[in-house]
């Protein structure tokens, strides 16, 4: 077999196309701010294979793409946070630090010649003491980080969903409004269902009003039904 010269630009483009294709196959995830924190909403039929999860006291994680890859990243993130919090202090664990670590890793894998890039997109969200200090970082397969102001959409059909969210987003929305808007956004995805059953949604919040140090809380089917019913 003869080796062919491939220009670096072409190589990067091929790798990006490859990663994008993998990501586009999956359903999207919406991470959106509301008055009391940050809400993470995923279209996910599995009850046990999570797309959104807890990393640390104030930090949540959402991902789309290849399950084994983002699961690996999720566990690495928990290890990163727990190790830092144990060796220093719980308040020294930040979402920005974790987003940086993920960015480094994804960027290195993307540009390293030997292996295939990760087919994942991630969100690292950190709830602050007030709405001003909430942080949402969106990370793409090539390690670039976007600091999102109001919401983040990851997955295949982000444009359509983002358009819906951008049109209807209001500052200081209640959890009910945020969840309903997120679901409305997910429904707007091309080829998406008109109705998404409660069982096909995975919803969690980083709730700053929670008394416990751990602000991450999953929203069960009953509570979710109530949130969606008040429309």
């Amino acid at each position: 077999m003869s080796m062919m010269y491939v220009a670096p630009e072409q190589q990067m483009k091929d790798r990006a196309d490859f990663a994008r294709k993998g990501i586009a196959r999956g359903r999207s995830v919406v991470v959106i701010r509301y008055q009391e924190g940050i809400c993470l909403v995923a279209e996910n039929r599995s009850q046990s294979l999570h797309k959104v999860s807890e990393i640390y006291d104030r930090i949540g994680f959402a991902a789309v793409g290849r399950y084994n890859e983002f699961e690996n990243l999720r566990i690495a993130g928990i290890r990163h946070a727990d190790l830092r919090g144990y060796s220093y202090d719980r308040q020294d664990v930040s979402g920005r630090g974790l987003a940086n670590a993920y960015a480094q890793l994804l960027g290195t894998i993307f540009s390293a010649g030997g292996e295939k890039p990760y087919e994942v997109e991630l969100v690292v969200a950190e709830v602050g003491l007030s709405t001003d200090s909430d942080e949402i970082y969106r990370l793409t397969y090539d390690g670039s980080v976007v600091d999102e102001d109001r919401f983040a959409v990851i997955g295949g059909q982000t444009e359509a969903i983002s358009a819906v969210l951008a049109a209807d987003f209001t500052e200081g929305a209640s959890l009910t409004e945020a969840v309903q808007l997120a679901v409305k956004g997910l429904r707007a995805a091309p080829g998406g269902a008109d109705e998404i059953a409660v069982g096909a949604l995975e919803v969690a919040v980083l709730d700053r009003s929670r008394a416990q140090a751990r602000k991450f809380r999953r929203i069960g089917a009953d509570e979710l039904r109530q949130l969606l019913d008040t429309a």
Binding site: A76, R79, Q104, L105, I109, G114
Partner: peptide, 20 residues
């Protein structure tokens, strides 16, 4: 090979759920 930039390779290794 996964580089150790960002998250060291031990963080990505399969292992038990024990933090200790």
């Amino acid at each position: 090979m996964v580089s150790d930039a960002g998250l060291p390779p031990q963080f990505l290794r399969a292992g038990s759920s024990s933090f200790t």
